[in-house]
Simulated assay, not measured.
Amino acid sequence: MNTITAIETRFFAFESDFVDSLRCIPMIVRYKLDTCRVKLQLADWARLNYHEKDELAELPCHSQEEIDAYADFVHALVWKYTSTVPSLLKTLDAAWVHTQVPAEVREKAQEWNCPVISAHQWMQLDVLERFALVKLSRSGHEGRNFPRALAEFGLAAAC
């Protein structure tokens, strides 16, 4: 049976500008979506009501049964508003589970003139923190949140 690390629902301080309204997809939901390999478009997220968004943040997504139920719930929500189902990620590049700092995180830190993150520091972060840094390192994410996340996770002062 496939079981992932249980992640407590929490929001990061660097997400504070949108967490109250949930206008953007918070990292906890992105983590759960990646876990069940569902690609939820921001336009589809925007159609959901606040209660549905909050439920996606709170629902467990750890055991295979929970992962399947979470994916089914997301599909049902998207279908409700769009009469389509979200696409699935072909593969899951879970760079956050590796013991070495992913190249994309190192490169993003260098781009922002932030200190180098050691493998020891990387492994001291919890799974959701490592996930957030990987996601914030990839194109399509607001760059200003990367140094804010580093500071929040105790890896750098203002960089």
Rank of each mutant, 00 (worst) to 15 (best):
T3M: 09
T3E: 08
I4C: 12
A6C: 15
F11H: 10
A13C: 09
A13D: 11
A13H: 09
A13I: 05
F14A: 07
F14D: 06
S16H: 10
S16F: 05
S16N: 12
D17M: 00
D17S: 01
F18T: 05
V19H: 01
D20M: 02
L22S: 05
R23P: 01
P26C: 05
P26R: 06
M27Q: 15
I28V: 11
V29H: 00
R30Y: 05
R30W: 12
Y31H: 12
K32M: 07
K32D: 01
L33R: 15
T35W: 12
T35P: 08
T35E: 11
C36E: 07
C36K: 08
V38G: 09
Q41T: 14
L42I: 08
D44G: 03
D44W: 03
D44P: 01
W45E: 02
A46F: 03
R47F: 04
L48H: 06
N49V: 09
Y50G: 08
Y50R: 11
H51T: 13
E52G: 06
D54G: 14
E55H: 14
E55T: 15
E55W: 14
E55D: 15
A57C: 04
A57Y: 01
L59K: 13
L59C: 12
P60F: 10
P60D: 07
H62P: 03
S63K: 10
S63A: 09
Q64H: 10
E65V: 04
E66Y: 00
E66V: 00
E66C: 00
I67Y: 04
Y70D: 10
D72V: 11
L77S: 09
L77G: 03
V78L: 11
K80E: 13
K80R: 09
K80H: 06
Y81K: 02
T82H: 11
T82R: 11
